[in-house]
Computed example of a mutant assay.
Amino acid sequence: MVRRVRRLLVAAVGAVLVAVMSVGTAHAAPKSAPPGVDITGEGLSEPLRLRTETAPAHVTAVIDQVNWFGTDGARSGPKEADLGPKYTVVVLAGDQPKQTFDLYPLAKGGPRAYRPAKQPNAAKSNAGWFLGRLNMSETLRTAGVPLPRQIEAVSGGVGGGERMLPEESLDPGRDIDQALGELQRLLLLNAGVVIVITLGLAGIALLVRRRTR
């Protein structure tokens, strides 16, 4: 009888441990939200909403226009009369805005971009002006922005520098608050399982003790 009870105990503990490991793995790797882009500006009666599910190439191309800027840009930009039409690009992770930039694809002397100090994700950022890629206008035009075609803009042009939008910044699963929330839920779940196992072991031990008297 004692051997039978021991076998049942081992089987029960093994099943509980497998369940805990499976749930823990699921909570440790939350699915990341896909990136997206919202564009507003001259000639657009409503925001141009680009999402990875429907326009992955356009989302990647537009983000590529702003993800290479350094930490510090120029404090002043061209004269307002030389900037041309402005288009505000908001980079999102799922439906959550992460960063915003003002793009001037037709500025005299080449495309320009401005990064405001105030960002929607509350991250610290230095306001600054940057030279834009030469294909900025064509990238926006092919994405749906009403701009004249620029035949000479074929390659990326100006580029390089430190990346300001690494991949993890577009993954809300990596946000500190969400990570802490997932960890808290996992710890509570594990604590509950430990309590159940402890009570089960106590009950089985009591049963064995009574049967062996």
Rank of each mutant, 00 (worst) to 15 (best):
P105C: 01
T60Y: 11
T40H: 03
A26K: 02
L9W: 04
A122D: 14
G110I: 03
L180D: 08
T88F: 07
E168D: 14
A28C: 12
T139G: 10
A19Y: 09
A11V: 07
G200L: 07
A93R: 00
H27G: 00
A57V: 14
V208M: 14
Q119A: 08
F101M: 08
I197G: 00
P47A: 11
E46M: 11
V37Y: 10
P172C: 02
Q96L: 14
L131T: 12
L50G: 03
T25Y: 04
E167F: 07
L131S: 13
L183S: 11
P166C: 12
D102T: 05
R3C: 14
P47R: 11
T198Q: 01
F130M: 05
L183F: 05
A81D: 13
A205K: 07
G36F: 02
I204G: 05
A57S: 10
G161M: 07
I195D: 03
L147I: 12
K86A: 15
L92G: 00
D38S: 13
V13P: 02
L48H: 03
I39M: 03
E42H: 12
L17R: 07
Y87T: 00
R7P: 00
G84R: 02
L199H: 11
G43V: 03
R213K: 05
T139A: 10
T52D: 09
P78C: 02
T71V: 10
T52P: 00
V62W: 02
S125E: 06
G110K: 03
P120H: 04
T54E: 08
G77K: 00
Q119P: 05
V154G: 09
H58M: 12
T100A: 11
T212Y: 11
V5W: 14
S125V: 06
G173Y: 00
D102A: 12
G77C: 01
V158H: 14
G109N: 06
I151S: 13
A202F: 11
L183R: 11
K86P: 00
P56M: 08
R4S: 12
K79V: 08
R6D: 13
G109H: 04
V194R: 07
T71P: 00
V18M: 11
K86W: 01
A33R: 03
V2L: 14
T142D: 04
P105H: 04
E138A: 07
G70A: 07
V208H: 03
I195K: 09
